[in-house]
Amino acid sequence: MENVIYTLHDFMLRTESLTYILIVAALCGFIFFWRFLSERDDGRDHLGADRPGGHHR
């Protein structure tokens, strides 16, 4: 009885909780992965890093 999910509500409670954790992890992961991806670029595209001369009007 303990391990079986009987209601859709319970089921969604579990899947949604996991989903929210995954979303947070994904968003953090994205930042690092994008930095990794653009690290070797000419310094204009990576987040949070110096953008000499870039990003001006």
């Binding site: 391990n3 079986v4 999910i5 009987y6 209601t7 859709l8 089921f11 409670l13 579990r14 899947t15 909780s17 996991l18 929210y20 954790i21």
Partner: peptide, 28 residues
């Protein structure tokens, strides 16, 4: 809490009630 609520989901699918996680008929 967060983790136990989410982690407990791994035990699903053990019975016909939760097969595939698509159809639920409530507490028998």
């Amino acid at each position: 809490g967060w983790l136990s609520a989410a982690g407990a989901g791994t035990t699903l699918g053990r019975s016909a009630h939760a097969a595939g996680g698509t159809h639920f008929t409530g507490y028998p």
